[in-house]
């Protein structure tokens, strides 16, 4: 069987499209690359969806934590502490238990126990908490002059937030936020590993890597393949966030732009 054929058969296997049975013997490198790559679809899906949705909650949490109103501040603080202070592993465990019992009381919540929704919700809360803390830190370090300038222009409320506070916050937070995105993509491997069941062998990259390691009893091929895919993914994430960073900083003089880069990764 040629490699092209394998890719046709198994390229979308993680979504349930293509050959139903996984390869059973005589595993080729091509099969391992194809299936583990197919599983990456899930990792990318979880990562992107959680980031995209978590971003908004994170902004809200950061504003909440920075608020002077106790009723806004305390819930935001507790939410961030709870999700940043406990391992994702344990969050998944509790979430699955909770979703299971919710489903038994309210049958229409059926989808919660499947990974595509249930795990996504956990990752969404998790990344929102981490990013919220990052944004909060950035919010506090917005130069006083920027706000004063906005006041001088007569900007208030929403327009001040949208045109001054928010862009500056993002600009300051971006390097750390990039790191958070990388960690989040890595965290997606936990979904099927510890918490959510795998239906009809449609799993993520780690699941398939585990499948091959289990069948060939040789961990030294599938896991490095998985590592290879993730290094690629990480590079793409860094590149993508770099493009946005450039856009966020396009008004700054060149010397200052490079300075931004130095701060990269100082904090998660």
């Amino acid at each position: 069987m040629s490699c092209i054929q394998t890719i046709q058969d198994y390229g979308l296997r993680s979504l349930g499209i293509g050959e139903r049975l996984l390869p059973r013997n005589d595993f080729t490198l091509c099969e391992q690359f194809t299936l583990i790559g197919s599983g990456m679809i899930w990792n990318i899906y979880f990562g992107i969806m959680a980031l995209a949705t978590g971003f908004f909650l994170a902004t809200a949490l950061a504003l909440g934590k920075a608020s002077t109103n106790k009723w806004l501040r305390k819930p935001a603080e507790w939410f961030i502490f709870l999700f940043r202070g406990s391992p994702l592993f344990i969050q998944f465990f509790f979430a699955y238990f909770l979703f299971l019992s919710l489903k038994q009381t309210f049958p229409f919540l059926d989808a919660l126990t499947s990974a595509w929704l249930g795990a996504l919700i956990v990752l969404f809360f998790n990344t929102a908490a981490y990013s919220g803390e990052i944004f909060y830190g950035a919010l506090r370090s917005i130069p006083k002059g920027d706000i004063e300038a906005a006041d001088a222009y007569g900007m208030t409320g929403w327009s001040r937030f949208r045109r001054i506070v928010w862009p500056t916050m993002l600009r300051l937070a971006w390097p750390a936020y990039t790191n958070e995105a990388i960690f989040l993509f890595h965290a997606t491997t936990l979904v099927f590993f510890s918490a959510f069941p795998v239906w009809q062998q449609r799993g993520d990259a780690l699941y398939y890597a585990g499948y091959f390691a289990d069948k060939t009893f040789n961990p030294f091929i599938p896991y490095p393949i998985l590592a290879f895919y993730f290094i690629l993914l990480t590079l793409v994430v860094i590149w993508g966030f770099g493009v946005v960073n450039k856009r966020l900083n396009r008004h700054l003089p060149v010397a200052k732009r490079t300075k931004m880069k130095l701060r990269l990764n100082l904090a998660r």
Binding site: L21, L22, V198, W199, Q200, Q201
Partner: peptide, 10 residues
Amino acid sequence: ADSGATLVEF
């Protein structure tokens, strides 16, 4: 997986 039933793995 071979039998045609829906397999769910834990």
